[in-house]
Amino acid sequence: MYGRAQKIIYAVFVIAVIILGWSLDNEYYLQLLIFIGLNTLLALSLNMLMGYAGQISLGHAAFYGIGAYVTAILTTTYNVEPILALPAAVGAAMIVAWIVGIPTLRLSGYYLGMGTLGFGMIIHILFREWSSVTGGASGFVGIPPLEIGPLIFDSRRSYFFLVWGVVLLSIIMCRRIIDSRVGRALRSIHDGEKAAAAIGVDTKKLKVQVFVLSAAMAAMAGFLYAHLIYFISPGTFNFVASIRIVTMVVIGGMASIWGALFGASLLTLLPEWLHAFSEFEMVVYGLILMSVMIFLPRGLTRGVIDIYYRYRKSHDK
């Protein structure tokens, strides 16, 4: 199939990451790129669920939060090595996703949106109110840096390589799943759940599986986030955060892996640019979100392609 083209793209990607990682000396830019990486992981994770399988989630920040809080509590309160906390953090998110997914994914449309929203709110409130364990509304401090054997990821540069390494692996993983029998079955659910079942796809089971996978990726991002900032608070994992992930996916273009990267980059950079607007920031952000959805509902990437084709067509005549 696309074997060769794909390898070239991956190679370009790796080279770009290496060049950026070595040449950038500005801590702020490195930090920004790390955040783009984390958001790309989140967007990729939701894209598998929403873009490919067509199941909306308005509570995805919950899994991001579970990943972050589990590792924070284990490594700080219980002095577990970060690398050992990783499977626990990801595993916890997967178990929660499995338990919640079975009843929730039977719903569809707005009802599914509401179910996931409610779940996300409950987890957020839990982070905020269970203060003896989570540190409550003021947050959880003192998370140790990530150490893997002799490697200590306490500089911006090392973390940059770590995060983007994980992003690359995740992209390859998603690509492989999508190009396989499972990926086609996921897309068939998106196109028509009834027809997918009539063709022999176990839609219920597959939806739960992809939900669990998606939760695992989001938890991975949460894990990396916690050991990057050393401090987490419930506000990072609230309803607005969940919506931001949805927006990354939609603006980048649903069912597109590179779209997820693009959407994540844009939504990470946008607030930085909007700082210039100081108190107008929220107003402008809201306006941009609305305009993109009104005029380019298929996302910016596809939207630009569509406009190009329309332009070509009108010129051919």
Partner: peptide, 28 residues
């Protein structure tokens, strides 16, 4: 009204965008 394909997901994001906009306006 200008939305051409009013799918739930598009409308959700538009109304969320509006909510951010209005909150920002309220703050101003």
């Amino acid at each position: 009204r200008p939305v051409r394909h009013p799918e739930p997901i598009v409308l959700i994001i538009i109304t969320v965008g509006a909510s951010i906009f209005l909150r920002g306006a309220g703050m101003l």
